[in-house]
Amino acid sequence: MSVMQHWHREPAPARDAVAVSGDPEDVTSARRRPGAVWGRFLLRRTVRTVFSLFVIVSVAFVVVRLSAGDPVRQALGPTAPPSLVETRRAQLGLDLPLWRQYTDYLSGLLHGDLGTSIITGQPVIDVVSSRLPKSLLLAALAVAVALLVAVPFGLATAVLTRDGRRRGLELGFNGATGLATAVPEFLLGAALVITLGIWWPVLPVAGADTAASYVLPVIALAAPSAALIARVARVEGLKVLGRDYMRAARAKRLPTATLHLRHALPNMLTAVLTLAGTTAAGMVAATALVEQVFNWPGLGYALIQAISGRDYNIVGGIALVYAALIIVINLCVDVLLALLDRRTTLLER
């Protein structure tokens, strides 16, 4: 039996579909009707997505509306006459009961209207469309850097520390990655601004005018996630390296690149991709604070400013966009994992 044949016969880490369903005929029937299985799978995800968005929009609406302060008074200034304030409140519908404001807001969302800024009068959709690309690019670069650094680093450390070897390297790896995961992104960003922007001014620390402007924000976003992914990659790599088919491959004295990249890496990617999807969703949310640190002209910076100014519509619209991005990322991860292991859809019958 060749090594590749042995590899293809290695059971997947997921539980056996027969054992889960309890009925072999159900599994056989499901395998004969892949369209029906995928239809139920996507329907469940769609229902969850809609429900999650509804909950997030509702919570954001209530929290912002019940916060202290009058956004109209803040927008018009303390010297504005009360009659002007009341007129502006009526124009914005803020004089209506809370339940009426809520239904009007939901109705506008269903028609694609995110409202207008209380302070500037700018449509929220224009704010989102002008700032979202910068935030998405920042998060995408951070995810790419985290994966490109963490997966090879984790696998290489697993290879070097296999079977209890190089205890010092293992301790150093665990200590360094543990420390990196404990540092919040915004705190790391502030440290980078101080060290590489003030003490040794080698990189720009504000704006997004040049390619160099991306370096520090991407590092601040990517470093904690890269450390976490590297830890998981090492653990999964050790599991894979200890399996029988890997011992057989080593016994055949296959080249190192073939052994680790062709046989070990594909079998450890499922857990790594699951964590990477969750990490990507977290990075999208973390951009808000990182953008504030680096004065980045993205969606997160606009969200922080809107919260400070109690601009209800801006906060609600951006919160909805963030929620949609995170949910879509999680949905894509679920579909990708289901494609890698078709039995994932059967486990949720």
Rank of each mutant, 00 (worst) to 15 (best):
L98K: 10
L109M: 11
G115L: 11
R88V: 11
I118D: 03
D95M: 11
Y102Q: 05
I118E: 02
L106H: 10
S117R: 10
Q91A: 12
L106V: 15
G93L: 05
D95L: 14
L98G: 07
L94H: 12
L92W: 03
Q91V: 08
Q91P: 00
S107D: 05
G112E: 05
L106M: 08
S117G: 02
Q101V: 04
D104G: 04
R89P: 05
S117L: 00
G115A: 12
G108C: 05
G112W: 05
Y102R: 04
R88S: 03
A90Y: 11
A90P: 09
I119K: 10
H111Y: 03
D113R: 13
L109K: 08
T103A: 03
L114A: 05
D113Y: 04
Q101N: 05
D113G: 14
R88P: 02
I119M: 09
L109V: 04
L92M: 05
H111D: 07
G93C: 09
L96I: 01
G108S: 09
I119Q: 07
D95F: 11
T87P: 02
W99D: 11
Y105A: 03
T116Q: 02
G112L: 04
Y102V: 01
L109A: 05
T87H: 10
I118G: 00
R89I: 02
L98T: 04
A90L: 15
G112I: 06
L96W: 06
S107H: 08
Y102A: 06
D95T: 15
L94E: 13
L114Y: 01
S117Q: 06
T116Y: 07
G115I: 01
D104T: 10
D104A: 13
G108I: 12
R89N: 01
L109F: 09
L98P: 03
P97W: 14
T103E: 00
T116K: 02
L109R: 12
I118T: 11
L106Y: 11
H111E: 02
G112S: 12
L96V: 03
T116S: 13
T103R: 06
L114C: 03
P97K: 12
T103F: 09
I118Q: 05
R88T: 14
P97R: 13
Q91S: 10
L96K: 14
S107Q: 07
T87S: 10
W99C: 04
Q101H: 09
Y105D: 03
T116G: 00
D104Y: 02
G115K: 09
G93W: 02
A90C: 07
G115E: 09
L98C: 10
R88Y: 09
W99A: 14
R100L: 08
I119H: 04
L96R: 15
R100N: 04
